[in-house]
Write a protein that binds this DNA or RNA. Structure first.
Lengths: 225, 225
DNA sequence: ATTTAAAAATTGATATATCAATTTGCAATG
DNA sequence: CATTGCAAATTGATATATCAATTTTTAAAT
């Protein structure tokens, strides 16, 4: 997380839009109108533009100059590339994490995991957020903050598609097993467990999307121009 | 490279400041005054703020709200983390690149390499830029654009420190050897060659900096507050 | 001389106004 | 009926003005 900035308006707008994109409340291709947003938040255009500008730098928003701001459309290839990159980053991270994770970090991980194991009544958006945090904490335990940050940002962009994988117990089981391997300080085992999870997620996502969106060029609901 | 945006003012400012930070013309900690920049470019504050906002999202600029914009200060740990991350990303990239690089891509690589082998009269800033392009092209040959983009962005942030490694022939030799291994479609050899380069760069950078900046908390010249 | 407090100045954040490009809709034409 | 060209409307980019925070200066007190 970047250093806390007491920059009220801009960050409130940024956080909300970001969260709405990540959790899929705003669909790819959907327009983000400055005018609408500024009314919604009761501000002027400046903080809205700032927020959208920031999001575009994270590839969550695409700017068509003098035309509009849109939730970024992801192509099939881009999605596949991101999933591959995810494996590279997270495998490197767990390997290191399993060697140097502290007991406190394990407790933190357990706490987060318990948090989204229990309450099934919660919305998927909450689940999505906590899944990101779980994987971020694992990456953080690698000791490499830069690596961890990249993992988190990538997860942000992938989150919309991860919803496909929300098959209840599967993820819970895998996360439990991963925690076990981390407690055992077993790099190879942790790597194997995580790789299995990521591979299954990847094929599930790609299969599902190839079937559902066979005709369209870009992913997501909107199908906007 | 993000899709071309015909957004004149903002992008001109963004490109120039970015380049000045990367090549070390602007030192870490140095202030980037909106007022100065707007006069320099003959624009109003809006495009300047946009550009700085974007740069802060890439961690090249740090915002102190209601106070000022500064070239980001990098701690020793952050530098070390980034160098480690670089190895993770680039090793994964060459491995794939050596398997699937096309003849055209090899020619492109040779061309860029020749470009900064010959003219020694050029400034280091030119050298820095071309080194980034070389490594970016290798990553691009992996076929994973997302991975390649991350490599490029990381190099942007590392470039300032790479200048330490500009020991003439060393880099030229290694790059030649790397091209050889790519032509031979030898993943293991390419990986070994690149790892050697990166390891040497890393220790050289860290050693030099630990000696030079022993006292100060942050890296770079400025030592600004 | 050093520290503290208050005030002045600097600077960025936010708001509003104007400008320029793009997009949309309608009408004319083949 | 489809297509092209023009005009109107929408929308973002840029410019300017105002506001609020921070930083610096200065002067007083210890």
């Amino acid at each position: 997380m970047p250093p806390k900035q007491n920059n009220a308006a801009k960050h409130a707008i940024y956080d909300q839009i970001r969260s709405e994109i990540i959790t899929g409340k705003k669909n790819p291709g959907e327009r983000l109108s400055i005018d609408t947003l500024k009314n919604e938040f009761g501000t002027s255009v400046t903080p809205v533009r700032d927020a959208l500008q920031m999001l575009s730098q994270e590839d969550l928003v695409t700017i068509k100059p003098r035309s509009g701001y849109y939730v970024t459309l992801v192509s099939l290839k881009e999605l596949n590339d991101m999933l591959e990159l995810r494996e590279i980053l997270e495998l490197a991270a767990v390997e290191r994490a399993a060697e140097k994770i502290t007991d406190e970090q394990i407790e933190e991980l357990k706490a987060v995991h318990a948090g989204f194991t229990n309450d099934n009544d919660e919305t998927y958006s909450r689940y999505t957020q906590e899944n990101i945090i779980f994987h971020y904490l694992v990456a953080k335990a690698s000791g490499n903050d830069s690596l961890a940050l990249h993992v988190r940002r990538l997860h942000d962009r992938l989150a919309r598609f991860m919803i496909i994988i929300r098959s209840g117990s599967f993820m819970t089981d895998v996360h439990n097993r991963l925690i076990d391997r981390l407690i055992a300080r077993d790099p190879a085992g942790a790597k194997r467990t995580l790789k299995k999870e990521m591979d299954e997620a990847r094929t599930a996502i790609m299969d599902r999307i190839m079937r559902e969106e066979a005709g369209s060029w870009h992913l997501g609901a909107g199908n906007a121009t």
